[in-house]
């Protein structure tokens, strides 16, 4: 028999996943359009004039970055948007007055964030097949990096949702931090092509490790050490969960 807490977790996850599917023009389509444009402009028009990188065509090289960019953005915005809306409407109280423990709330929202990240990532991957024929070097590594990266950004979105006081607050982090870090995280280029100084600076960008971990899963090529990538992702997951649990226990942003 399922425990009451597990039923609560399933209920919250299902509710959030249904929301993603119900408003699919808002949740699934935009990334497909944006990434298609990237494939057409950077991959086809510009990429055809560039040589191979790491043994693959330029359009194939940017596939992992563009897929990962979609996963990151969608996981993040799903949880931050949904959680903040619940807070704004007051419906988060349904959960707060219920006996559902904090782990249920965190896991429920994170599961939906991971679901949307992976679903959009898959859709973008299928679109990439129209432009190139991506390889899969190691499916397990691909799965690990996809799931863990979407978990990192679902949790980050959750943190943003708790701390946000107005709708502007949930767009500040993605606009001013997430997007620049993603673009500078080796989506469109290999960091090895950068001057030494900028290579060193790039090493402080956590998204670089996620994109390269995924790229290694697809092509067996990475600018950084894969184990190091994995450790960084796991560190971010543990750090964020600890922070969220602490914040929920203190009630910051949710209780007075």
């Amino acid at each position: 028999m399922k425990s009451k807490n597990f039923i609560a977790y399933l209920t919250l996850s299902r509710k959030e996943i249904n929301r993603i599917l119900r408003i699919w023009p808002q949740t699934l389509v935009p990334s497909m359009i944006t990434q298609s444009l990237y494939f057409i402009i950077f991959g086809n028009f510009i990429g055809s004039r560039l040589g191979d990188i790491a043994g693959v065509s330029y359009v194939a090289f940017i596939v992992p970055g563009l897929v990962m960019m979609s996963i990151i953005n969608n996981s993040y915005t799903n949880v931050s948007g949904s959680f903040f809306s619940s807070k704004f409407m007051g419906s988060i109280e349904e959960l707060l007055v219920s006996p559902a423990p904090n782990w249920v709330i965190i896991a429920g929202y994170a599961t939906a964030g991971i679901f949307r990240g992976i679903l959009v990532g898959l859709l973008v991957f299928f679109i990439s097949c129209l432009f190139t024929r991506p390889q899969i070097h190691n499916i397990i590594i691909v799965a690990i990096f996809v799931i863990l990266t979407s978990a990192v950004f679902s949790l980050a979105g959750f943190l943003n949702g708790i701390l946000a006081k107005k709708f502007d607050d949930i767009s500040i982090f993605p606009t001013f931090i997430l997007t620049p870090l993603t673009y500078l995280g080796g989506v469109f280029y290999s960091v090895k092509s950068l001057p030494a100084f900028w290579q060193s600076v790039s090493n402080f960008n956590p998204i670089l490790y996620m994109i390269n971990g995924f790229r290694f899963g697809l092509y067996g090529y990475s600018d950084v050490n894969i184990m190091m990538s994995l450790m960084i992702i796991i560190f971010f997951i543990i750090f964020q969960i600890s922070l969220i649990v602490y914040i929920l226990q203190k009630g910051y942003g949710l209780k007075s």
Binding site: K4, I7, A8, N18, E94, P99
Partner: peptide
């Protein structure tokens, strides 16, 4: 319907 069914789920009703 979803609102009330979900609330029951948060309290552990299958």
């Amino acid at each position: 319907h979803d609102i009330v069914v979900n609330q029951a789920g948060y309290y552990g009703l299958n």
